[in-house]
Structure formats: structure tokens, C-alpha cells
């Protein structure tokens, strides 16, 4: 007959957190930052088909790092939630804050009750008519939510990248400056990142599409912005 081992709850939680953090640190990082016309999200991502950054709703974007299948499942759930909410109430009633709370609740639940925590960190961003109201919610694997008001870094080497962003960031910077700053911070002093290594998207306040603010910035345009 085997005896169940006693593991102190502190140890148990710490092990889970270490496990999740290790998984996340293996992946490449991502930066979300406010700029003059909305929100910019830049990710190091050599794949052109498996996206880290995507559209959730008219003015809301999602980005995830860590295990792709896990954050993609969260992305789809977010799209489903937002579309159903907009259908039942009104498009105006769909907001990033309530979605971020739902994600936090779910991640917290999984972290506490499931064997394996989710190895993801996610970002929920919203652009609003007034620059002061733009939102960045950074949610950790255990459901902790941070409400950022300048920029945030997710994924491996987040601390080093945050330090570099600290020195680069200026309030109300232009799209070009923000793209250059974020990409430099992601690359660090020893590397340069090419457009093919990057996935960049924006939520634009002055979007040409009256409703959907999400837009990907791809090869040609990205090359111009980085030059």
C-alpha cells in the first residue's frame, strides 16, 4: 500500500508557478505600447501563419505568449464571448475590462484547481476615442491582472526588455517611433530583427474602417516604419 505524500500548499503553488514560468520563458517576447493614435503590439514571431496577435472585436485586440495551443484557445473563447455579447446587447457594450476579468478568472481557476497551470501570458488591449482611456491589460498564468498605462512586456526576458522600453518610451510617441522603439527593445543590443521575424499590429483610433480598428502592419509598411 502506498502512502500519499504530504506537500505543503506553499510548495505546491510554487512548483506550479515555476512550471508555468519556465514554459513561458522559453517563448519569444512581445511588447504592447500606447502611441499617439492607439495601441501598438509588436511580437517576435518567425511564423506568418500562427499568429500571436489578433483581433477580438471592433476596438479590442488580443496577444499571447507561451504555449500556442493554450493561448489560441483563449483567443477563440474571447472572440466567441465578444461576438455573443455584442449580439445580445450592443456593440458598444463589449469592452476589454470585462473580457480581461473573465480571462483572469479562468486562468486563476485553472491555476488553483487543475494539475497543470496554463503556460501563457496574455494581453488584452482596447483603443477608445480619447487617448487617455486606451487600455492595456496584462494577465499572468495565475490570473493576476495588471492594468498598464504606458507599455507592457510579455514572455521570455521580459525584465531586460522592460528596462530597454523604460528608456525608449515617450508619452504620445508616433507610430514610427513606437515601432522602432519596441522592435529595438525586443532585439536587444546584440541583434537586429528583420520584418520577417516580426508580427506587428495596431488598434488605430483613426482607422479607415469606421468600425474595426485592428490592422496588421506587414512587410512593405513595416520595412518603411523600421527604416
Amino acid at each position: 500500500m502506498s502512502m500519499p505524500f504530504y506537500v505543503a500548499p506553499e510548495q505546491f503553488m510554487k512548483d506550479k508557478a515555476d512550471y508555468a514560468r519556465k514554459g513561458i520563458a522559453r517563448g519569444r517576447a512581445l511588447v504592447g505600447t500606447l502611441y499617439t493614435d492607439g495601441v501598438l503590439i509588436a511580437a517576435e514571431n518567425p511564423s506568418h501563419t500562427l499568429h500571436k496577435v489578433s483581433e477580438i472585436y471592433d476596438r479590442i485586440a488580443f496577444a499571447g505568449v507561451g504555449k500556442y495551443n493554450e493561448f489560441d484557445q483563449l483567443r477563440v473563447a474571447g472572440v466567441q464571448h465578444a461576438d455573443v455579447k455584442g449580439y445580445q446587447y450592443s456593440r458598444e457594450d463589449v469592452d476589454a475590462r470585462s473580457l480581461a476579468n473573465l480571462y483572469a478568472r479562468y486562468l486563476g481557476q485553472v491555476f488553483t484547481h487543475d494539475m497543470k497551470p496554463m503556460e501563457v501570458e496574455i494581453l488584452v488591449a482596447e483603443v477608445t476615442p480619447h487617448a487617455d482611456d486606451d487600455q492595456l491589460f496584462h494577465i499572468l498564468y495565475d490570473g493576476t491582472v495588471f492594468d498598464e498605462d504606458r507599455f507592457t512586456v510579455l514572455g521570455g526576458e521580459a525584465e531586460a526588455i522592460t528596462t530597454r522600453m523604460e528608456s525608449a518610451y515617450t508619452t504620445g510617441w508616433s507610430l514610427g517611433d513606437a515601432v522602432k522603439g519596441a522592435v529595438k527593445a525586443l532585439a536587444g543590443p546584440e541583434r537586429t530583427l528583420e520584418p520577417k521575424d516580426l508580427e506587428v499590429a495596431v488598434l488605430e483610433r483613426s482607422s479607415t474602417d469606421a468600425r474595426r480598428a485592428f490592422r496588421r502592419i506587414e512587410n512593405g509598411e513595416l520595412t518603411t516604419l523600421l527604416a
Binding site: Q73, A77, G78, Q80, H81, D83, V84, K85, Y87, S98, L102, Y103, R105, Y106
Partner: peptide, 24 residues
């Protein structure tokens, strides 16, 4: 409202109409 999460065999996929059916 809660986050709509489905098991892989039960997922409505990209169809919004099926999603509404699943949610009643």
C-alpha cells in the same frame, strides 16, 4: 456571462449560429 470554453469534440468552430445554439 462566463467565458465560453468548449471541449474539442463539442466546439462550434467558426460558426456563430452554432455557437448561439450551443449557448441556448
Amino acid at each position: 456571462m462566463s467565458l465560453p470554453l468548449f471541449a474539442p469534440h463539442d466546439d462550434p468552430g467558426p460558426s456563430f449560429v452554432h455557437l448561439l445554439d450551443k449557448l441556448g
